[in-house]
């Protein structure tokens, strides 16, 4: 008896997967998957290959490189970093488990110096109010002090960011901004970012990288802001299609109604 039950369950499971499961695997359902990319932010680390769950995901990423997004199922993933060109053989420089949620975008930064290399994963939100721009700042320079980022000679937009931190996004009007990175709480500029162009419907991440304040530089990553409709478009007007219910009766009714109304109105006008 038990065996039969198991068989039945197996068959039910098979049926369900046959109907629901297979199409989901044939086409990637991005709602269930996470989008993950890697930023090489370790100033003294060599070029690296990144392996995810044992497969080469990125090859030859150098300092300041950011990869395209990689689609991964929600859940835990084994991310291993190897020196480039060794085919993932030998000991990885670093191996960590990264947990991702479906429907989210992530940047995983390989950060700090080579001997204390770590992976930091943080979420990207590539959406913005239509016509606006959005920016955030990441402090990825292990030797640099806490910083403010603000307008040259003006107010700070982001304050007190320390290694390792990625700020929230700030929505701004699209324009060219004269930004600078300052030692936190001071007017001492560490890095001049004059003429930073922030375009509409784009999302910017300004990552400060480098070993310390002297070798500080920035990687500005620009992403296209995306939005999804809630409904499919109305891509037809019916002029060359079979119709579910007749247009003619409705058209005739409207026409007849209109005619009667017109006649009636005319009569009424005549009466007055």
């Amino acid at each position: 008896m038990k065996k039969i039950h198991v068989l039945m369950y197996a068959m039910i499971a098979l049926l369900m997967f046959g109907l629901v499961g297979t199409p989901a695997f044939a086409d990637d359902h991005s709602g269930d998957n996470a989008m993950v990319r890697v930023l090489h932010a370790s100033p003294d680390a060599p070029e690296v290959d990144v392996y995810v769950n044992g497969d080469a995901a990125v090859e030859g990423a150098a300092f300041k490189d950011i990869t395209d997004y990689l689609e991964l199922p929600a859940g835990d993933h084994d991310v291993a970093i190897f020196p480039a060109g060794e085919g993932g053989e030998g000991d990885p420089v670093l191996e960590e488990t990264v947990t991702v949620e479906g429907g989210m975008h992530y940047t995983v930064a390989a950060t700090n110096t080579l001997d204390s290399l770590t992976l930091e994963a943080f979420a990207d939100d590539n959406s913005v109010t239509e016509g606006m721009t959005k920016v955030r700042v990441g402090h990825m320079s292990p030797g640099a002090p806490a910083v403010d980022v603000g307008l040259v000679g003006g107010d700070s937009l982001f304050e007190g960011a320390e290694f390792f931190a990625v700020t929230d996004y700030m929505e701004l009007d699209p324009a060219s901004y004269d930004l600078e990175i300052r030692a936190a709480g001071t007017e001492d500029a560490v890095l001049d970012l004059s003429g930073t162009q922030l375009d509409a419907d784009m999302v910017y991440s300004v990552y400060a990288v480098g070993a310390d304040a002297e070798s500080l530089e920035v990687v500005v990553v620009a992403d296209q802001a995306g939005d999804m409709p809630s409904e499919m478009p109305q891509t037809g007007m019916g002029g060359a299609s079979q119709s579910g219910n007749g247009l003619l009766p409705i058209a005739l009714t409207v026409l007849a109604g209109g005619l009667v109304a017109a006649l009636f109105l005319r009569r009424r006008t005549a009466e007055q």
């Binding site: 990869t67 395209d68 003429g195 162009q197 784009m202």
Partner: peptide, 11 residues
């Protein structure tokens, strides 16, 4: 120099 942004894959 004004910083040239690195385009993310979707950009």
């Amino acid at each position: 120099e004004p910083i040239e942004p690195v385009l993310g894959g979707s950009a």
